[in-house]
Nucleic acid binder design. Structure first.
Lengths: 217, 217
DNA sequence: TTGCCGACCGACCGCTCGGTCGGGTATAAA
DNA sequence: TTTATACCCGACCGAGCGGTCGGTCGGCAA
């Protein structure tokens, strides 16, 4: 019996299984019957907890973004040299994405699927959007600070944010392809540590203002 | 009248519109009725040119990958110093993705949606998979060569390939989100050149073996 | 005991999905 | 003229979609 799970936290259970399913197959690829069945409920019961499929999707998305935001913003707000702060931010981002294997793919898909809903503003999406914007703004500010105070090379903060997202979110969203590429689970403790080291060392060498420039072409 | 387009290249027309639609909304999010209508045909006519929706999808995917492969493999096969070869590879990848705005998103989505079809081997996917593997193998070999000959830091070639994909494919797949972040079209000539410069300078500083290591933690 | 309420359900609705089928039309070889 | 072929179409199918509806059940307060 799973009585306690059913009576106490049906809403949480739905969010959990929906997160995994939306991450794996996307908004259009998941049916509410499957969500309900996986959660151990009838389909009608979903509508008792969520107004619509769109509402469920954005609640799932906002919940995932909120989890990361709650860890990343304090990290960004902490003091220290820009490079040390960036290191901590990378560690936090990668930890957050690695601990919940569905999250990275859900987030990356959401970047695409937002265009889908594009015609209307979609009020349900606002909490998720605000969390995302806060994190992006924090990362951008950190990079800009590092450049203006001379700790970083004069890179474009915006482009570097894109590169950071690619190096973290994309990596942990790459699924079977990524696992075939690196030759093992992306989410094992070893591989997660390895990813952190690779990203941070690339930033140490590639972003710091100290090194001379050996441009040949 | 669009007679010439209909009689001559209906198959090409279908592939074109399907590529744009699959890129924008994914496999599950696109209906064959919409593909047919956009192509100016009846839905039944699609089945004259393609055996099934899956076949159409993988033909679209293989065509896109083939376009890039045809440009990237010669680039990788050319001679020169590892860093110069890598520069050319980045230029080619970014040019290929920038010239066809739908391609990056199609490819990134395909990494996710492959898991969808996972249960069976899916014979239709083989041409696309072989093109992808050839490009990955080429990039990996280039990076490994650079490390063993001392031109690059001792990075993980596999992880660096992931980072390269993130810096190129993800960037040009990021759609509205990316445009809001960089503050303009990702595909304008200026922004494309900017992206190339940012990526290559990050690699020049971050991958070259010359600079000393200021590791603090 | 009565009445209410949150949680849940099966049956159903209108609609769209991928795919099939039989047939129509134009060109060109025989 | 007949036959073959390439191309295209409207009508249709079973299945599944998101969402609604009426109703059941157990707990809880008066």
């Amino acid at each position: 019996m799973t009585d306690e799970a059913q009576s106490a936290g049906s809403r949480e259970k739905i969010l959990e299984v929906a997160e995994a399913l939306f991450a794996r197959r996307g908004f259009a690829g998941v049916g509410l019957r499957e969500v309900a069945e996986t959660a151990g409920l009838g389909k009608s019961s979903l509508f008792h907890h969520f107004r619509s499929k769109v509402q469920l999707y954005f609640d799932v998305l906002g919940r995932a973004l909120g989890r990361i935001e709650a860890r990343l913003l304090p990290t960004l707000a902490g003091g220290g040299e820009p490079m040390a702060r960036l290191d901590r931010a990378v560690d936090t981002m990668i930890d957050s994405l690695a601990e919940q294997p569905a999250t990275a793919r859900l987030l990356l898909r959401s970047i695409f699927e937002d265009d889908d809903f594009a015609p209307d503003p979609i009020p349900e999406a606002e909490p998720a959007e605000r969390a995302l914007e806060a994190m992006i703004a924090g990362l951008e500010a950190l990079l800009r600070d590092g450049v203006t105070c001379g700790a970083f090379r004069p890179v474009s903060a915006r482009h570097m944010v894109q590169t950071l997202i690619g190096a973290t979110v994309y990596h942990f969203a790459s699924g079977d392809f990524g696992e075939q590429l690196v030759g093992g689970s992306l989410f094992s403790a070893d591989e997660v540590r390895r990813r952190k080291d690779e990203v941070k060392s690339l930033l140490h060498h590639g972003l710091a203002a100290t090194a001379p420039v050996p441009t040949g072409g």
